[in-house]
Design a protein around this nucleic acid. Structure first.
Lengths: 152, 152
DNA sequence: TCGATATTGTTTCCTAGTCAACTATCTTTC
DNA sequence: GAAAGATAGTTGACTAGGAAACAATATCGA
């Protein structure tokens, strides 16, 4: 009554990647939660910080989410008065999203949390290892043409 | 009307980690979907493969999910006749979960998909880089005492 | 120029989790 | 040995996302 031997979960690089990634993201989510912000909300705000104005569908592409999800996400940020939603001046279908003053003031604080989180999890690594890790991850992303901003 | 300069998303190691991890997991999820299995279901089945029998609450601990989630997950696997759920012989509150024959036959096929997915994303890396990546990830996991099997 | 097609954003239905309350049992403590 | 507390599993309310259908508007092609 033996069964075919198969590889353990832990033999996969994807296992370790996800295990660490989940915890890092969870840690970040908890930090953001103290400011009543989710990771997805943070990404939207960070994107808007640089560009003044952005269409929801662009955001959907960049974040690898559906337009439906962005629609609801924008609703939530609107309810918190962190972004503004306006009709596009040159396209009757389109909208523009932009940070409110309150939203813009919040972004640097959230960015500090992101910095802190990275330090929490990777700060102890020797610079060589950090660079190596970053380089390898970028290699994989490059090779598979991965571009969307990770949210979830 | 300039705004405080803040770090870009891409300066964080966590960003790259999650970006790659998300895609690797997505790729795996798609492979599993061809067999009508989710990642969470796969993990449950893989855990049961080694142990003959396991209590839902042990599974919850190992997978870092709530007992409620495991309860529903077990319902789904039960509906697919991949696992069996029985009352524990020695504890009136407890249950035992076990693979059915169909479930047990499926596991090696799913394991092959896991192997293939890892090869898809990391196969092109030189052995040195693979080992380095694995070692660094394990270091971080170890240091933060991360143990739960990543699912989501 | 007008009909076909594409794009934008919203909405509804579905899924898979969390959280917290609940029931049923088991264990501890006096 | 009974009361108090802990533990096992389930359930219901809620959340955040995806998929697909939809209405409104733009664009393209004959």
């Amino acid at each position: 009554m033996t069964h075919p031997p198969i590889s353990a979960l832990t033999t996969h690089l994807g296992y370790w990647l996800r295990m660490v990634s989940n915890q890092v993201s969870l840690g970040f989510a908890k930090k953001l939660a103290t400011m009543d912000v989710t990771v997805a909300e943070w990404v939207v705000m960070r994107e808007l910080y640089d560009v003044e104005t952005l269409a929801p569908s662009r955001l959907a592409e960049r974040m690898g989410m559906t337009r439906g999800a962005i629609s609801k996400l924008a609703d939530r940020l609107l309810a918190k008065a962190l972004i503004a939603r306006d009709a596009s001046p040159d396209d009757g279908r389109a909208q523009t999203l932009a940070l409110t003053e309150a939203g813009r003031k919040l972004v640097p604080q959230l960015a500090a949390l992101a910095d802190a989180n990275d330090a929490d999890y990777f700060g102890h690594l020797p610079p060589t290892e950090r660079q190596m890790l970053e380089a390898v991850l970028k290699t994989v992303a490059e090779r598979r043409d991965i571009r969307t901003i990770p949210v979830e």
